[in-house]
Write a protein that binds this DNA or RNA. Structure first.
Lengths: 222, 222
DNA sequence: TCAATAGTGTCTTTCAGACACTATGGT
DNA sequence: ACCATAGTGTCTGAAAGACACTATTGA
């Protein structure tokens, strides 16, 4: 830090907003209003506003609110992407975040978002394809060792729904018995009183659960 | 990304350079040449030079070379720290990296670095304390599931040295038998011909090993 | 009673931890 | 012969996977 005669790079925040639609992991995209890549769908992003944002997380919250209407959803920093050529406007830094939202919450709040399966995201502007891939990787990796995947469900859910979401995130089938045993050993959930059966075509009523802690990380793989 | 009338933040790169000294994990600090915090020891860092650096990793390599003389050592991105008040000069972004270097390599190349145990780093400028803590956390967390800790050893090492470094990084004693079994199951190492006993006071000669791959990540905990 | 999912019991295998044991070679 | 470290064998207990089993209730 010896010299400050260098041009400052552009700094933006980009958010990989993930949700579950039809048992598939999907990314929410927004059509760009301005150049470059005007009218192309890309990650939700924006400049940091030095006057209103105290830190990068503030910028994420503001941008999510402004551009999607969402508020109070889970997000965490992924990493930054910084290079001379990722943006045609010049040297730029994107501080990338990934966010998880239950589909119903997304539908209630969101403006006009486009959902695409993460496996076939189509062509994305800038290096958004790479950022998306990094987010999915992170979710898959951390998903097996944390309650992260539960952030894709509503606050209250059944054990089957939880298992199903883990299967989707991790990408493999899990044994029902072992799954319940592990979840129960880890003591992550609490029962919700007034059990009732959800929408499904099941006959037998299902116990409902909620997370004790917003987010838990553990050693053993689910 | 709608508007570009906002002042651009300062963007720097900061490197948490870790090594092992006396069985303790230490961070290498550099005395700052300029304000703010002139003459205070802090992380190795610098501005991105938009003209010479193609990306952030280029900046890391350049800064490491210029400020420490080190070349070709392991580093990876940690995360970014971005806020209005982390730097008295204004809104700033630090893309933080952590790097691992064997002590002999550090001593051979380094200019005037100061080594401090990560457990007692003293008072650091900016939010460098927080960045250091994040780096140590990452190393501890990832260390048990990868060959990362081996980057603190020379290319060729004994099984005992490897075990010892894992113990230091993870922060707990490991059973010798189980350790060797796991390492051998994972098939990470290859024997080096011409076994010889190293410096120690051991009587029996020791087999020497090197890593097959620069870095490996695995599922099971060491 | 049947369909359909909820939820449990138990066997087997795998693996980590503990710990005692053997091996080697300089002094 | 002895010491200090290198390196191995084996027992035990915990947990994972496989899979069959029972439970509940609307239709």
């Amino acid at each position: 830090m010896t010299d400050e005669q260098f041009p400052r790079p552009i700094v933006t925040v980009d958010i990989v907003l993930l949700t579950l639609s039809d048992e598939r992991l999907c990314v929410a995209l927004l059509q760009r209003a301005t150049e470059p890549f005007q009218a192309v769908s890309g990650l939700i992003g924006g400049y940091i506003h030095a006057d209103e944002d105290q830190d990068a997380e503030d910028a994420v919250r503001r941008i999510l609110k402004q551009k999607t209407g969402l508020d109070g959803i889970f997000f965490e920093q992924l990493r930054s992407f910084a290079s001379a050529n990722r943006d045609p406007r010049g040297w730029s830094v994107s501080i990338a975040y990934f966010a998880l939202v239950p589909k119903p919450v997304l539908e209630a709040a969101a403006h006009t978002l486009e959902l695409r399966p993460v496996t076939e995201p189509g062509s994305l502007p800038f290096d958004h394809g790479e950022i998306l891939a990094a987010a999915v990787n992170r979710l898959r990796g951390k998903g097996a060792y944390s309650t992260l995947p539960a952030r894709l469900l509503p606050d209250i859910f059944t054990m089957s729904e939880l298992q199903s979401i883990y299967e989707t995130v991790i990408g493999e089938r899990l044994d029902q018995s072992a799954f319940r045993r592990k979840i129960s050993d880890l003591n992550l959930l609490e029962e919700v009183e007034g059990e009732k059966r959800q929408t499904e075509r099941a006959r037998r009523p299902t116990t409902l659960y909620r997370l004790k802690d917003p987010i838990s990380v553990f050693n053993r793989r689910i």
